[in-house]
Nucleic acid binder design. Structure first.
Lengths: 213, 213
DNA sequence: AACTTTTGTCACCGAGCGGTGAAAAATATT
DNA sequence: AATATTTTTCACCGCTCGGTGACAAAAGTT
C-alpha cells in the first residue's frame, strides 16, 4: 500500500513515468539532485530501468531535451502580429514573453541554471537544443518583419535575452538582483518597463545607431 | 616527500593556507566540489582543522566572502574620470570594466554561478555581500555625476548588469550564448559594442524616455 | 622536568551515490 | 501446459561525502 499500484506492466508507460519523474526532480530539487537514485525513487521504480530503457542518465537527458525542445514553442506562445509592426515591437514582445515563460516554468529555470553552473557535454547539448528551439520560435514568429542591418542585432539581442534570463534566474534563487527586489508583480513591472525602455531606445530611434568613440 | 614540508606549526598560517585552498577549489572545480574533504585535500591538512578554526564550511565561506568583498574594488579598478562626463559614459565604462573583471576572475564567475544554481542561506549571503561591494564601488566611482531621474535607473542598470554577468557566465560554461560565440577577443568586441549601443541609446538620447504603449 | 594548552593527524561512522549481476514475476509464444 | 522472452525488483559493490572522538606531537607554562 505504501508503493504505487503496479497493476500492469508496460515498458513505454514506465518510460513515460520515468521521464516525468526526471522532470519533477529537476524542477523541484535542481540538477544537483538529478541522479539515478533520486529519479528512480521519484518514479517509484528501480533505477536499473533507467539504465535498461535509456542507457543511463545521458540517454534520459537526451529524451528530456527533445521533449523540452518540442514544448518550447507552446510555452512561449504566439506573438500577436497586430500589435507589433516594427522590429522594435517584435523584440520587445519576444523578450517579455520569454520573461514570463521563464518565470512560470521552474523546469526551464533549472535547466538554464544547470547550463551555467556545470560545464559538461550534457549541458552543452542542452544549451544548444534550447538555443536552437528559441531561434526557431523567433524565426517562426518574426513573419515578414526584417531586422535592421546597420547594427549587430545578434549581439544586441543576445545581451537582452541574457539580461532577461539572468534576472529570472536570480529572482528564483535569491529573490533580488543588483539591489532590485524581484518578488511580487510590482517588482516585475519595473523590470518589464526597463526592458521595454532598453529595446525601444535601441531599436525605435532612427538615429540611435552605433556611435564612434 | 609527497606531502608538504610541515616545518612549523602556526595557526594563522594554516588558516591562510586553508582559505587559499578553498578559493582554489572553488575557482577550479566549482561549488559542487566545495566541501571539507576536497578543501582539506587541496590544503594538505586534515579536515578537522576546518571545523576547529572556522566552525565548519559556513564559517569558512564567511571569511571567504569578506576577503572577496575587500578585493572587489581592486578587481574592478578605477574609472578614468576624464573620459566619462555624462551618466551614460559612466554606466558604459562601469559595465565594460565589470565584464572584463568577470572574464578574468574564475573565482567571481564560480561564485556568481553558485548564487544562481543553489538557493541556500549561504549563497544568499554571498550574493548580498557581492551586491553591496559592487554598489559601494559604483557609488565611490560615480563622483559628482548624478543619474537621470525620469527613468528607473535601478531597474535599467540591474538589467544591464545582469546581461553582462550572464554573458560572462555562459561564455565560461559553454562558450556561447543565443547563437553568439563567446570565445576570442573578436567575439567580445561584438559584445562590448552591443553593450555600448544599449547604454548610449538608453542614456544618451535626451528624448529616449519611457514611451506609453 | 612535569604540566597544560595548542596544533595537527588518524581512524572510524552512517549515509548517499553510480553502477552491476542475478533472480523473480508477468507476459508472449509454441 | 510448457517454454521463452520481456519487464521489474532485489541485493550487493566500491566510493566519496560530512562529521566526530580519540590520540600524537609540538609549544608554552610553571
Amino acid at each position: 500500500m505504501t508503493k504505487k499500484a503496479n497493476i500492469t506492466r508496460d515498458r513505454s508507460g514506465t518510460e513515460r513515468v520515468i521521464v516525468a519523474a526526471a522532470k519533477r526532480v529537476l524542477a523541484e530539487q535542481g540538477f544537483s539532485a538529478f541522479g539515478v537514485n533520486s529519479i528512480a525513487r521519484a518514479a517509484g521504480c528501480d533505477k536499473q530501468l533507467i539504465y535498461r530503457y535509456f542507457g543511463g542518465l545521458d540517454g534520459l537527458i537526451e529524451v528530456l531535451g527533445r521533449e523540452m525542445s518540442d514544448q518550447f514553442g507552446d510555452m512561449l506562445g504566439p506573438i500577436d502580429p497586430a500589435t507589433c509592426v516594427t522590429y522594435s515591437d517584435f523584440i520587445e514582445h519576444m523578450l517579455l514573453q520569454l520573461l514570463r515563460a521563464l518565470r512560470q516554468s521552474e523546469l526551464l529555470l533549472r535547466i538554464a541554471a544547470w547550463e551555467i553552473a556545470d560545464a559538461s557535454p550534457i549541458t552543452r547539448k542542452l544549451a544548444q537544443v534550447r538555443g536552437a528551439a528559441l531561434a526557431a520560435w523567433v524565426k517562426d514568429q518574426r513573419g515578414p518583419i526584417a531586422p535592421p542591418t546597420d547594427r549587430d542585432v545578434g549581439a544586441i539581442n543576445a545581451a537582452l535575452i541574457a539580461a532577461v534570463q539572468h534576472l529570472a534566474l536570480s529572482a528564483h534563487a535569491i529573490g533580488e538582483f543588483g539591489g532590485v527586489r524581484l518578488a511580487d508583480e510590482a517588482d516585475w513591472s519595473r523590470v518589464e518597463t526597463a526592458v521595454s525602455t532598453l529595446v525601444r531606445a535601441t531599436y525605435s530611434h532612427p538615429d540611435a545607431s552605433v556611435q564612434r568613440g
